[in-house]
Structures are given as structure tokens and as C-alpha cells.
Write a protein that binds this DNA or RNA. Structure first.
Lengths: 332, 332
DNA sequence: TTGTAGGCGTTATCAA
DNA sequence: TTGATAACGCCTACAA
């Protein structure tokens, strides 16, 4: 049904080898012949089959990315940076969301079969599968995961910025803290954030689990927490969405933020800036992370780089109104 | 380098045809032979090559989606619904963002070569290419675009809900309106929204262009507008992000919303609910749109349905605090 | 029940 | 400068 190289060759009165050469500029072709070929290509509106090309070339010219979900701004921002650079490098992007999927293993394996390399968030892919993929030489870039031999790792700085945040809050004079959205897996971003804040605040901070890292979960957990008689004065939330949920809870309970309660988030998503009070948070370079992942993967695939790289991107403490009053208040 | 079906066949002491049959259950295989084959597959850790399978089957088992960008919540929410259902249907998702890309035509064509069907937002793909794709029988689903013969169309209702919104605002008694983020292309969502509101408000509303549909653009345009002596009393924004920008502008100028100025958005993105005042807006079923697009595309690809469908999803006016005071105020 | 062989659409090697 | 032809990895009539 689709036009093949054979039809072009026939129409141009040459062999398929010549058509291929003429089109890719991969060998000598007389300019007269080239004209004929191009004319035939034009007339038949020929486009080489991706499948044929990939099979022959032994590459897909596509990258994959595995993330837990696309519900919040975080992963989509990373994806944005990733897709942009991948496209620039001539690679299509195949996505895979693992949330709520019954057969993650199979899905990741299937994805791996369609691409030349993979970006994987945290532990969204089973460890043994990951090991297997590394084993067969599949280029891999992890984001926010413990470094692993045979794969690149990319993450943004957590521990130091968590410290900085904790110190800032301590400067406000609070004495009872809660960390909302406690970590589930060792080595992930949340664990590192907890490590940083608890390192500074010690006994004064208590970890509180949320069901997920979402507005609803944050809302629910904060409601519970804030109703307790000895409620915390400051809520350090493990991400902005949880913090937004906490803000809603405070409002419902008639607590003024930041006067009755301080709240902070993480990531600096769009809503953080628009919330009132605007959310104090730690900005992560989400797009840049995606862009870097794409570049790193490209290096691995093209073989420009042999050794694996492990990078820690810098973050920025963004002080707004939700953590307490400051001399020169500005709700930027 | 990768294990092929030949190695499995050799190890199991059978032909490749038998291996294929055993694995796909596509023909008679004695259970003894099957055991041998499965054992060999296991030992060699064989996975059929996607390329080989696709080439032989004549299908990619993948869908594409073309959107302008991934920057705001709108497209990502649709993508979320799309990916979820596509995965459920056993199809991978290949994404393409056209924003800032020099060679959109080529990129879309390339994408089309990797998939069995395509979802296309608005006019992100060139009209003639689209016509060409329809011509060669590529299954196509448009979102928010004028219906076209040979392709499905999906959009959410705009005109009627725009009317409803305008009527509600008129009920607040405003007399000078501006529509922030005027339409660029006839037939797109924004045009329909303008059609709806201007139909009700007539001369009392003025269209105002923004550079883009972003917070920054909205902010900038609103600043300009609100500084004018005869500034509007109500800003109907063409989407939530523009509206958020307008809220920031109002705050900067010391205008209280909704007392000095009413502001409304469109889409009901996450930040709309968290902004203060919370944004009155029109909720679009973004995820459902993506999910439906995936289903529609599947029907077209599998040939279950021959005729093209054109669907208009219902929307919902969400009244919050930013459009004016109401008897029973609730900042849900 | 199993194997042989042709086809899917390219690329690239090697002769001519 | 060009053309056969062998991969690439799989599926599936058709024959045995």
C-alpha cells in the first residue's frame, strides 16, 4: 500500500541501491541519475519506511522515558526539557507511565525494544530488569535514583538545600515542625530531603506519611495533623502539591498562614507562585534536568562517552510569604 | 548482539517457525516441543525484536500525538488520559511537540512513519500534510479543530459555556469587559469562546491580544489594559494561565479582585483552585478528552468503525471568588 | 505436528 | 558510476 524503494527504482529506471545512495548521499551518483531518482521520488511521494531503515541501520532513532505519572507539573516539566532536546538530536520520544499499570515489567521491556536508550525516574522500573538492561548494553540514564554502575545518574541537590530551608525556618523561631509526605524508599528525593531537614531540626521535627504526593493527600494529612492539640508551627512539605493541600487545610481550619502556621513546599511549580500566601519552596531545575538527561543519553548511545556520569544539579531556596514574615516582603 | 529467534530455534532443536508458533500460540505445537522452546527462550532470555515483528505484522503497535507544547497543564492533562488508555490498548505512545521547531512538517511526517495512527491538536500539523495523511489512509483524530472528512474530531463545548459565563458576569452588573487572549486562528477553541462571549456582551466587550497563552503574556497584557483610564471591570481570559497573569497584574496595581476587577479563566487547571481569590473558570474534561481520543483512534486503526465521529464534550462553569461576590461564598 | 522458504523495506558490501 | 545480493529479525503460507 505504501510506496517502496522498489517502485521508485523501477520508475527511475535504476536499482534500489542507487535510489538509496541518491537519497542518503552515501555513495557516488551521477547528477543525471540523481535527477531521475529525485523526480521519481517526488512523483510517487516516497518516504523510506522507518521500520526498514531501522532494521537495516540497527537503530531506532528513538528514546524512551519511564515515569510514575503525568498528573502533576513535576514530571511533565522534565519531559518537556527532555523531548525538546531529544527532538533537536533527531530522536523521537516514546513515553511510559507506570502508575496504576499492572505489568510494569513487561511494559518497560516492550519500551526498551523500541528505543536506543532509556531515561528512568527513580525506581519506576524493577531493579532486576534494570540490571538486565544494563547487562545487554542498553544506554540508561536515571533521574533521582541511587547511582548504579553502567548507567548515568542525574538528580538535583536535596540534602544541602533541605538544610538551608530548615535553617531559614529555625530563624523564624519555630520549635515544633512536621515533615509532610515522608519517604517511602531509601535514596529517593524525599529521603534526602528528610535527611537534610531532620539533620538540622533533630527532635523538633516529626515525619508524617501521606498516601501520595498530591494535593488531596497533603490536604488530608494536614487536616489530621492540624487538629491535634499540640499541632506543629511549621509544615515542611516534601513537594509543592502536598504543600498546596496543606494550605487548603489551614484555610478550612481557620488558621492563618504564615501567622498561625508556616508552610513550605518543594519544586516551585506554577501554582506555588500563585497560591496566597505564595509558597516558600525550593526550586528544582526541572526542564534542565530533562534536557541534560537527553544529552547524556545521546552521548551514551552515540558512544561519545564511555564512562558513566553522575550529576547533581543545583537548586535554589525561593522565599515567599508562606514561611513567615520578612523585612522586605515581596510576593514575587 | 541481541538474541534472535534463530538462536532459540537452534538451541531448542526446532525451526524458527515452530518457535514463533510456540510463542504466539498461532498454530499447533506439541506440548513437548513447546516445553523445549520455552526452556530455550528462558535460558537465552529471548525477546522478539520489535522491528522484526512490526515489519512482518505490518503494524507498529504505537500511536502518536502532536501538540504545540508541554508547558502548561492543559496538554499534559490530555496526554495523561491519552497515554493511559493507549497503554491499556497495548499501544505505545510517541510524542511530538511542535513549539519552536523549525521543521514541523518533517517532524510530523517522521512521526507518522512510526505509528499506526495519530492524534493532532488544533492546527499543529500543516493542512496539506494532514490531507496527505488522510489520503494514504492514516487514522487520524483531531482535537479542537474544524471537522474534516476522513478524520475524527474531538473538542469540548465552547460557545454555549462562553455564553453562560458571559451571562453570569452580566448578572454581576459589569458594563465594561475585555477578552484577554484573543483568537489567532478561526475555528480554534479561543475563537469559539470569543464567539460565545461577544454574542452576549456585544459592544461592551473588547478583544485584546496576548503574545501567547501564558501567565507572562496575560500579566503583561493585563498591566497595559488596567492602567488605562477607562479600564474594564471584568477580564474574561481565554485560559487560566492568562487569567493567573491578570491576577498578578491586578495585585501589582493595587486592584482588589473581585471588588475592583473581576477575572475569569478557562480550563480549571490546578492553580485556578489555589489562586486567591480562587478563579472562576470553565472546566474542560481534559483527561477524558485524551482518553476518548485514544479510544477513537483505536477504533479507526482496528477498523471497528468506518465512519468518522465528531464529538463535543460537555464543560462546566465553575464559579469561585474571582468573578464577584455571591450569596453563599465557598472557595472550593 | 513440523520445516522450508518467501516476504516485509531498507542499507551496504562487493563486483562489474 | 551502477547493480546484484546478502543481511537485518520476524511471521506465515505451503509442503511435508
Amino acid at each position: 500500500m505504501d510506496v517502496t524503494i522498489y517502485q521508485v527504482a523501477q520508475r527511475a529506471g535504476v536499482s534500489i541501491a542507487t535510489v538509496s545512495r541518491a537519497l542518503r548521499g552515501t555513495g557516488p551518483v551521477s547528477s543525471k541519475t540523481r535527477q531521475k531518482v529525485l523526480k521519481a521520488v517526488e512523483e510517487l511521494n516516497f518516504t523510506p519506511s522507518r521500520l526498514g531503515v531501522s532494521l537495516a541501520e540497527g537503530r531506532h532513532a528513538a528514546n524512551g522515558i519511564v515515569f510514575p505519572n503525568l498528573a502533576g507539573p513535576y514530571y511533565t516539566e522534565v519531559l518537556l526539557g527532555y523531548e525538546e532536546v531529544a527532538a533537536e538530536l533527531g530522536r523521537s520520544v516514546v513515553i511510559l507511565s507506570t502508575k496504576g499499570r499492572p505489568n510494569v515489567r513487561e511494559a518497560v521491556k516492550e519500551l526498551a525494544g523500541r528505543v536506543d536508550g532509556l531515561v528512568v525516574f527513580g525506581r519506576t522500573a524493577p531493579d532486576d530488569l534494570v540490571a538486565e538492561l544494563i547487562g545487554v548494553g542498553m544506554p540508561l540514564v536515571f533521574i533521582s535514583r541511587e547511582p548504579m554502575a553502567g548507567a548515568d545518574t542525574l538528580r538535583s541537590e536535596n540534602i544541602e538545600s533541605a538544610r538551608k530551608l530548615a535553617l531559614h525556618l529555625r530563624g523564624h523561631g519555630y520549635t515544633r515542625y512536621a515533615f509532610l509526605g515522608a519517604p517511602y524508599a531509601p535514596g529517593d528525593d524525599i529521603s534526602q530531603r528528610w535527611e537534610g531537614v531532620s539533620g538540622v531540626l533533630g527532635e523538633r521535627i516529626e515525619p508524617v506519611l501521606t498516601a501520595e504526593y498530591t494535593v488531596e493527600s497533603g490536604h488530608e494529612a494536614a487536616l489530621r495533623l492540624l487538629r491535634s492539640p499540640n499541632r506543629p508551627q511549621a509544615l515542611i512539605c516534601s513537594d509543592d502539591e502536598v504543600a498546596l493541600g496543606a494550605l487548603l487545610a489551614a484555610e478550612e481550619l481557620g488558621l492563618a498562614v504564615p501567622d498561625d502556621l508556616a508552610v513550605t513546599g518543594w519544586d516551585d511549580i506554577m501554582a506555588a507562585r500563585h497560591a496566597r500566601p505564595a509558597l516558600t519552596t525550593i526550586r528544582q531545575p526541572m526542564r534542565e534536568m530533562g534536557a541534560r538527561a537527553a544529552r547524556a543519553l545521546d552521548e551514551l548511545i552515540s558512544g561519545v562517552r564511555e564512562t558513566c556520569a553522575h550529576l547533581n544539579l543545583a537548586t535554589e531556596l525561593v522565599i515567599r510569604a508562606s514561611c513567615g514574615h520578612h523585612p522586605q516582603e515581596d510576593h514575587k
